[in-house]
Design a protein around this nucleic acid. Structure first.
Ligand SMILES: [Mn+2]
Ligand SMILES: [Mn+2]
Ligand SMILES: [Zn+2]
Ligand SMILES: [Zn+2]
Lengths: 151, 151
DNA sequence: GAATTGATTGTGTATCATTCTCATTAAAGA
DNA sequence: TCTTTAATGAGAATGATACACAATCAATTC
């Protein structure tokens, strides 16, 4: 949960024998400039880049998202929509969690400092190297409670 | 997060105009008799039932898992394996969370009472009806840290 | 307890997110 | 600049999950 720049990304990649490519740099930039509370799926990122004239293949998008999640740069979110979403994995005080309506997928972000502390302590206790720590609350939003729809 | 019996399941289903079927009752029983810290995927549940001579179709398995998750009977877990896992959604003091190695998928359960309190409070504050609340820690286990494998 | 109704099931098929293959390209280091 | 090999792009393959629809049967009514 560090703040990355192109330079620090490059050195961390090179340390492991990997490379900084224009594609990887561009994708990191997109996430760094994303508005607060905005999450992107692979497909959404692909189309966003297309719109900016950046032709990065969908394969590379998928590979890069997975790589950056495994490095702890991005967080992989399961927002009850059948595909993954990603956002920058930010440290305190930007670290936050998600409250999701399982019916309409409306998502609310919220903060709670003690959760990251719990996560850090738990990982440490077991000797795990922490990448991400997210509280996910599945619930039914007020609107969907009123609409008496079948599940 | 209630403890369900066949009878309470039946009344809750009937309240909504739905039915208790032998398939649904059997599937609930499987989860109730599952050993601690055991999680099942749709496919695993299917084969477990086949082994017991219960021929419930894979479609029904998927439908039932989704139904019971939306009712709050089961929790849907994303254990970094490319498919969902399910377990009984148990109240305090059995409620727990997961620490997952993103490389080998080794999963450790841990408890922390304050998290459920945070989840309950957050949902209530926003007027959401709570179904489940899970802290997921993504990390790299000690063994996988030593094995210097490519991500 | 028979008839009615529509929710549920099983089978097969469709969908779609994600991964894989492989030839080509291009970072990194010497 | 040259060499090595990681990374990319394009398309095909995979696999988890959803869907369509005819047949079944759980719940309710008479
Ligand atoms: Mn977020
Ligand atoms: Mn568990
Ligand atoms: Zn909703
Ligand atoms: Zn591991």
């Amino acid at each position: 949960m560090t703040v990355y720049t192109a330079t620090s990304l490059k050195s961390e990649l090179n340390e492991r024998g990997w490379r900084l490519t224009p594609q990887r740099e561009t994708i990191l930039q997109v996430f760094q400039n994303l508005p607060k509370a905005k999450h992107l799926s692979a497909e959404e990122l692909y189309h966003l880049l297309q719109g900016e004239g950046e032709n990065i293949s969908l394969s590379t998008i998928y590979r890069t998202l997975k790589l950056m999640a495994r490095m702890g740069i991005l967080r992989e979110l399961e927002l009850a929509e059948g595909h993954k979403h990603y956002e920058l994995n930010q440290p305190y005080p930007h670290h936050h969690h998600h409250l999701i309506c399982v019916r309409c997928n409306k998502t609310i972000e919220f903060k709670n400092d003690s959760i990251l502390k719990t996560g850090t302590k738990t990982a440490q206790k077991e000797g795990y190297h922490l990448l991400d720590c997210q509280l996910t609350i599945h619930a039914v939003c007020p609107m969907c409670q009123r609409a008496l729809l079948p599940i």
